[in-house]
Design a protein around this nucleic acid. Structure first.
Length: 565
RNA sequence: CGGGGUGUGGCGCAGCCUGGUAGCGCACCUGCCUUGGGCGCAGGGGGUCGGAGGUUCAAAUCCUCUCACCCCGACCA
């Protein structure tokens, strides 16, 4: 492609609205433009990156027997009503009515459509297993789109669905996807972890997320370098180190005005790890008291899982009515509500709220001075010990680039997607669903592979592979050589971008670094003076000076190295 | 949904506090010049200051409402 005829609108400055590196670079390099919050246009370069990623995905999906289909974006309400998600999902779903006032929605995902298709077309165990996939737009009315292309309201997803006769079949399909996904991310040049994740409302048989580490990520994951344990923060468990417990005897101490852990800690000159944070939550069965150590944070999802169902923080007036004290002064001693305590509180002696404003109780022993149900409630922090092997865990931010879920019969039962088994009996199909976000792969790749000057595309997903850059368009020798190289390299099968703009060299070099094509061939004064062109990798930037006729061979050598990496 | 912030030419910003009729850099157009890391000189085009209402002789500037976008949090099959 010739730059002069392309839409590659690079920007000299960072866009004001961008925060994340990938967001800034994807806009500056002319990959995308924002139409509205969380709604993006993919420009030619961005589209090529998506195409590359999708090609890798298709190959790996086809390799495990996936069959590509395309399902609609527009769905009738009925199938969502049958699965129960029409009401279970709130404002995140775009809903609309047609001219006859029929309810429709825009697909956030396609389990319902797959189950519907299965009811129509799957009759017998002989028709199973099946793997169906599509690369299709998803629409979700995200509460807060952010970080450029990372979290948008309209986005492309490769979603596949497996249909099996039983749980064993599902397990195989699930494993095949896990492996295919690893190959996809390996090929796309991403660093990633496969972590246990919370299946949420998706279905309860298990799920994993594929997380690409990046400071711009929205999620935290806990990792153990020693044994390989990896889990999303909402599931991850760690064992915090115990503080040295003093030889306290029970006493009530005045803590006037101290409402928070730092305040009480400072006032009493006591390590926060020796305080217990008492938090009132309201679940399905009413008010409960959740306890975590003062230096830790409650993970609401963990508490919700323990209690089963939705929870919310108690209002201050609910707290006062129940405990007779304000939020900052409540504690577990002598209260009538159920108490759930973080597992690390089983041992030790602590300071807790006295259920009396302005006072705390020192020397309180869980199990002796109050009884509680113990469970893992706290957010894993750096430095805790791995539950499996005892080594210290690290906590990293990461971008969720894919998720895989064992759905079981969650959708096939309500939508009556059944098959007849060998004995002629009707049984529900076992389903799995598996999603990948191509745009998130692109953003994660930029996050993980860039420098101060711009993007450094991995070979496999670069919008072009070779960038031919004639320095001076007024020099006939340079332009002719560049044209010839452009033709030869294209002929050799490379995807080549020729910067044939009549721009200053500085502009061209800056743009080349910005858009990050893996190999650059510079045709400049070195050609005139020494009869050579320079071939260099975007990463590394060492020039190999070769005569023009040898350039294709040198490019091939570079390409071999880059495609291996 | 709660909190914070920003809307001024295509992009990035100043001006607003203290009202007086809009400015800078980049980009763009023309000419000359220049050609290995975002040149130089000269000339030029382009803005109902997000929108509506109000105060005032006069509003980008003050007041009210509203919309959009960004950030933090909540939420996220």
């Amino acid at each position: 492609m010739r730059w002069s005829r392309s839409l590659i609108p690079t920007l000299r400055e960072d866009p004001a609205e961008a925060e994340a590196v990938s967001h800034k670079l994807m806009i500056r390099a002319g990959l995308v433009r924002q139409l509205a919050a969380g709604i993006y246009v993919y420009l030619p370069l961005g589209q090529r990156v998506l195409d590359k990623i999708n090609a890798v995905i298709r190959e790996e999906m086809n390799r495990i027997g996936g069959q590509e289909i395309t399902m609609p974006v527009l769905h009738p309400a009925e199938i969502w009503q049958q699965s129960g998600r029409w009401t279970a999902i709130g404002e995140e779903m775009f809903r609309l009515k047609d001219r006859n006032q029929r309810d429709l929605c825009l697909g956030m995902t396609h389990e319902e459509v797959v189950a519907w298709l299965a009811t129509k077309e799957i009759r017998s165990y002989r028709n199973l297993p099946q793997i169906w996939y599509q690369i299709q737009t998803k629409e979700r009315d995200e509460a807060r789109p952010r970080s450029g292309v990372m979290r948008t309201r309209e986005f492309l997803m490769k979603d596949s669905y497996t249909l099996d006769v039983d749980e064993v079949g599902l397990a195989k399909a699930y494993e095949a996807h896990r492996e295919a996904y690893c190959r996809i991310f390996d090929r796309c040049g991403l660093r990633y972890y496969v972590v246990e994740s919370d299946p949420g409302m998706m279905g309860g048989l298990g799920s994993h997320d594929f997380m690409a580490p990046s400071s711009a990520g929205e999620d935290e994951i806990a990792l153990c370098a020693t044994c390989g344990y990896a889990a999303s923060a909402e599931l991850a468990r760690g064992v915090p180190a115990s503080p040295a417990f003093p030889d306290w005897r029970p006493e009530e101490v005045p803590t006037p005005g101290a409402q928070t852990i730092p305040q009480v800690s400072a006032l009493l000159k006591v390590d926060p790890a020796l305080l217990i944070k008492s938090l009132g939550y309201v679940g399905a069965d009413g008010l409960v008291l959740a306890l975590v150590r003062g230096d830790q944070t409650l993970h609401e999802k963990k508490l919700a899982r323990v209690l089963g169902g939705e929870i919310r923080p108690a209002h201050p007036d609910e707290i006062r009515a129940q405990f007779g004290a304000s939020v900052g002064s409540i504690g577990p001693v002598g209260v009538k509500v159920p108490i759930i305590a973080d597992a690390c509180l089983r041992e030790g002696v602590y300071v807790v709220g006295a259920n009396r404003d302005g006072f705390h109780l020192k020397g309180v022993r869980p199990g002796t001075d109050f009884t509680a149900r113990f469970a893992d409630l706290h957010v894993v922090q750096l430095g805790e010990r791995c539950r499996q092997c005892g080594a210290p865990v690290t906590v990293e931010r990461a971008i969720e680039v894919a998720g895989i879920f064992k759905l079981g019969t969650r959708y096939s039962v309500p939508l009556r997607a059944v098959f007849l088994d060998e004995t002629g009996q009707a049984r529900p199909i076992w389903m799995g669903s598996y999603g990948i976000g191509p745009a998130r792969i692109a953003a994660a790749a930029v996050e993980q592979s860039h420098d101060a000057d711009g993007i450094i595309w991995p070979w496999s997903i670069a919008p072009y592979q070779v960038h031919v850059l004639p320095v001076n368009m007024k020099d006939r020798a340079q332009t002719e050589t560049a044209e010839r190289l452009y033709a030869e390299l294209s002929e050799a099968g490379f995807e080549v971008l020729l910067d044939d703009r009549d721009e200053r060299p500085g502009v061209k070099f800056k743009d080349a670094d910005l858009i990050g094509i893996p190999i650059r061939v510079t045709v400049g004064t070195a050609l005139v003076k020494d009869g050579v062109v320079e071939v260099r990798a975007r990463r590394g930037r060492e020039d190999r000076r070769v005569p023009p006729r040898d350039a294709p061979v040198t490019v091939k050598e570079h390409a071999r190295e880059l495609s291996r990496a």
